[in-house]
């Protein structure tokens, strides 16, 4: 326990230092945050323009889609703000920075996670808050303590699902070095498929996105539960409650995989 507390303290120290570094580039701060917001915002602008004409998509109104979209975005921002640096693993290996990290008495993943100067995650976060704000003011939501508690757990679970993908790819990176394209594909697929009501697809596609590529767990299934829309799911409704467990499980598996791969690390010859 003391060990975990120490790791968390060190993680927070390193993350603060990284943020202080990012803040030195004053002119770039606003641009990066705006860019992060524009990336996610353009997706929501699409939904908004669509619903302006049609009112509903597959039975989902603006408030409900905003809730789903905002929930996904909160999970996305949460994992990015905490683990963003993990995406730099290719570079860290190529430049030999990982060799240095292995010698320090701090968890390697935690060191990787904190070596970043990107402020894009805070753009994602600001957009997540905006979209969620729209949802809260438009949609009719259940604000009982149980429902709010589940919402919080589901957002954390969703963040762990997306984070587990990043950590798994980081594991592959130790072996194959160049994983940029795979990362781009995986995250784009999650961005694209995770934010919209998957009931627009047939039941086969819904099942694939639940059991094979668990994108549905990030936001679609838990949002269906919170919004009381489990009636139109092609998978059992109780799966909607499983997001926190699925997140914790996948993240644990991904972390174990990363540790295993790291044991076989050979470096690139520095």
């Amino acid at each position: 326990m003391a060990e975990i507390r120490r790791e968390i303290r060190l993680y927070l120290k390193l993350r603060r230092a990284a943020l202080r570094g990012a803040m030195q580039y004053r002119g770039n701060i606003l641009m990066m945050v705006l860019a992060g917001a524009a990336y996610q915002g353009s997706g929501f602008a699409f939904v908004w323009a669509l619903l302006h004409t049609f009112g509903t998509v597959a039975g989902w109104g603006l408030g409900q889609i905003a809730f789903l979209y905002g929930m996904r975005l909160l999970s996305h921002a949460l994992w990015l703000v905490t683990l963003d640096g993990v995406m730099q693993v290719d570079y860290a290996i190529r430049e030999g920075h990982l060799d240095r990290m292995l010698l320090r008495p701090v968890n390697v993943l935690s060191q990787l996670a904190t070596t970043t100067r990107s402020l894009l995650p805070f753009g994602d976060l600001s957009m997540a808050i905006v979209v969620f704000g729209v949802a809260v003011s438009v949609a009719d939501l259940d604000w009982s303590p149980g429902s709010v508690a589940f919402l919080v757990l589901a957002v954390i679970g969703g963040a762990m699902i997306e984070g587990s993908v990043a950590v798994t790819i980081a594991g592959f990176s130790v072996r194959v070095l160049d994983t940029w394209a795979y990362r781009l594909m995986m995250f784009d697929a999650m961005d694209t498929l995770g934010s919209y009501p998957l009931s627009i697809f047939g039941s086969g596609m819904q099942r694939t996105l639940t059991y094979v590529l668990p994108v549905a767990f990030v936001a679609f299934l838990p949002a269906s539960v919170i919004l009381g829309r489990t009636g139109q799911l092609a998978v059992p409704a109780w799966l909607g409650y499983a997001t926190p467990v699925v997140g914790a499980t996948l993240f644990t598996v991904a972390y174990r995989f990363w540790r295993r791969q790291l044991r076989g690390y050979q470096g690139v010859g520095h």
Partner: peptide, 21 residues
């Protein structure tokens, strides 16, 4: 390859969203 996959996944999604609408 990545840009192709990204474009194709997007086409699949966006056309389904519009059909549903």
């Amino acid at each position: 390859l990545a840009s192709v996959v990204v474009t194709l996944v997007w086409i699949l999604l966006v056309t389904r969203v519009w059909s549903a609408a």
